[in-house]
């Protein structure tokens, strides 16, 4: 790794941590109903929304009502997004005349955005109208992110309230998340990104005349779409001369801002943040990267503040950072080292004043290996899923890092709530096991951890590996699953594993070598995304309901402090052991064996 690369990573992390306390404090105030500097501006809009939706903001809900409200809100939004895509051909704001989206693809996309996954089987600029992008995808970006934060806030109330049934009001938590947190941050970021060159327009795509016309040979096909062969059995072709290029534009900046801030990740364009209109400059890259970690890092402090013990938040932040730093080091290190087979061919992969060096396949020249690998690690640590390079082209071990970050549950940092409530489930498991080892009743933040909470935490921890591994097994075992693979050998296996890892974790990033827009991946993927999201949220809210009903036990001599270095290290050990037990065998079949074969000089054709 180069010294300038290390410096860039350090600057990024320092800037992220500078925002942790102020933003974390602000978010805690929002959710606790305290007055903030935005109340005068946003307060009337908030109250108006409650009035027209007939919501009583004072009405607290038990966990069952909270969960049903969340599910109803999600499924209605999902059906609306599905309808919007199917009807976009007859709806306005469609200057390119995009037709109805295929049912299977529309279903996958609707599920994907309802679950905050934002898996991209669609190609934004070739599939969706401006209305579908704005009123469909962008709106879901806001609401699905706010739902994730609402679940965390409900869980925090479960931990802090005493002997009550209610865990808050879902509608109030969601509205506040959108109006006071996501919307203001998105407006600021959208303006900054537009300043950096992202389009923000409703004009049709532009047509440009090429300065250097080009041509290519296009195969001639028959009525069935099969290539027509000549007398020698070779495919007949015709020469196509290209003199013009269509340049896709649209309301990009407004969608990009929430795409990163809400850890959504679904791009306006198919190439996501590798596209020059989504991420044109190194500074826009820095802003977007910062936006990915901004709320996830700050929400850990929010957690500490809301449980009335900021040491708890700092301890979890430390545990997350302990997992995050080595991952960055491995991903950047292997990408900067380059492809070992290229060295023997005499290819210069050394960083110099003339080139960034390293493995540049699948990467944008303006970002290079460091910013690409840093992004890949960051986007999979949180549940973001946007990409600025193609992970399929990474060296095997660097390509494994994003998978590992997702396999750990995307708990680094707290996501928009999702990573944080998964982390709390892991803390419960860690506290329980520690309690068993010393023979004391486990407790966390003064609440006794009993059989029900452990069962729920176990479901939360096991649902993700189950859907990922079963989905991968289906992908490998069926012809429909294997048909999407574009590489033979272990790399092809990695493509399937990555796809189901990403969908099962509601991440949304892609290895990019897999053709996912097939009925198999659209339909099975939708099921995996739904189960990965809501079969975790329901037990998390059940834990909240169960804990809220309990009394608080004052700390005693037998209480395990959960803010000490000892507990942080124990928590990291539990996270790594659970991740390794679940996923080491499949990683051995994919990236690990590919790395060993690559270093031995074996490739697959």
């Amino acid at each position: 790794m180069t010294s300038i690369g290390i410096l860039r990573i350090l600057i990024f992390l320092v800037v992220v941590f500078l925002f942790v306390k102020p933003l974390g404090t602000y978010m805690a105030k929002v959710y606790e109903g305290e007055r903030t500097f935005l109340h005068r501006l946003v307060g009337p809009l908030e109250r108006w929304l409650y009035r027209i939706c007939a919501i009583d903001p004072q009405a607290d809900m038990p966990w069952q009502t909270y969960t049903i409200a969340l599910l109803s809100f999600t499924v209605v939004g999902m059906l609306l997004l599905y309808a919007l895509q199917r009807l976009q051909g007859v709806l306005p704001l469609n200057p390119q005349g995009m037709g109805a989206v295929d049912p299977s693809l529309a279903f996958n996309t609707a599920t994907s955005f309802a679950t905050n996954t934002n898996w991209q089987n669609y190609g934004g600029e070739t599939t969706l109208s401006y209305l579908s992008q704005m009123a469909g995808l962008t709106v879901k970006n806001f609401t699905s992110a706010a739902v994730g934060m609402a679940v965390l806030v409900a869980l925090i109330r479960g931990l802090t309230r005493r002997s009550v049934k209610a865990i808050g009001n879902f509608w109030v938590d969601t509205v506040r998340g959108v109006l006071y947190i996501l919307m203001p941050l998105s407006i600021v970021l959208a303006l900054l990104l537009a300043w950096q060159g992202l389009p923000q327009t409703l004009s049709p795509y532009k047509t440009a005349t090429l300065m250097e016309p080009t041509s290519y040979e296009q195969p001639i096909t028959d009525a069935n779409g099969k290539p027509v062969l000549d007398a020698k059995g070779q495919p007949k072709t015709k020469t196509i001369k290209v003199t013009e290029q269509q340049i896709a534009i649209g309301p990009v900046a407004s969608q990009l801002a929430i795409k990163e801030l809400g850890t959504n990740g679904g791009g306006f364009f198919n190439a996501n943040s590798a596209h020059p209109f989504e991420n044109p400059t190194p500074f826009s890259n820095f802003l977007e990267l910062l936006a990915i970690l901004l709320i996830p890092a700050a929400i850990v402090y929010t957690y500490g503040r809301m449980v009335k013990d900021t040491r708890q938040g700092w301890a979890l932040l430390a545990a997350m950072t302990i997992c995050f730093l080595p991952a960055i080091g491995v991903a950047v290190g292997f990408e900067q080292a380059g492809n070992p087979l290229f060295h023997s061919l005499g290819v210069d992969q050394t960083a110099s004043n003339l080139q960034p060096g390293g493995n540049m396949e699948g990467k944008e020249v303006r970002f290079g290996p460091v910013d690409s690998a840093l992004w890949a690690t960051t986007t999979t640590s949180t549940s973001n899923g946007s990409v600025n390079s193609m992970h399929d082209s990474y060296t095997p071990i660097a390509g494994m890092v994003p998978m590992v970050m997702m396999h750990l549950g995307e708990i680094i940092y707290g996501g928009v709530g999702t990573g944080m409530y998964d982390m709390v489930a892991l803390v419960i498991v860690a506290a329980f096991v520690a309690g068993l080892m010393v023979g004391r009743t486990p407790e966390y933040l003064g609440k006794k951890i009993e059989a029900f909470e452990m069962k729920m935490a176990t479901i939360v921890v096991l649902v993700m590996p189950a859907v990922v591994l079963v989905g991968t097994a289906l992908g490998v075992a069926t012809a429909a699953g294997r048909a999407g693979v574009s590489n033979p050998g272990p790399h092809g296996f990695s493509e399937i594993l990555y796809a189901f890892t990403s969908m099962g974790n509601n991440n949304g990033s892609a290895f990019a070598g897999l053709n996912g827009n097939t009925p198999f991946y659209n339909d099975v993927g939708a099921v995996v995304m739904w189960l990965g999201r809501f079969w975790e949220i329901v037990p998390v809210l059940a834990i909240a309901g169960s804990l809220a009903a309990k009394k608080v036990v004052p700390p005693g001599a037998g209480t395990l402090p959960t803010y000490t270095v000892q507990f942080v290290l124990w928590l990291v050990a539990v996270i790594i052991i659970l991740g390794a037990l679940s996923f080491l065998p499949v990683l051995a079949l994919g990236p690990i064996v590919e790395h060993l074969l690559l270093t031995a000089g074996t490739t697959f054709k």
Binding site: Q64, M78, L79, Y82, R86, P103, F452, W535, V538
Partner: peptide
Amino acid sequence: MADVELIALTLLFFFSCVWMVDGLDRLMGR
């Protein structure tokens, strides 16, 4: 799959979670 089948699958998603809420509620009550 056709529109109707996919909408039915969406509702199945929803009710799978409602069923889960009901089951966990009973488990909690024990």
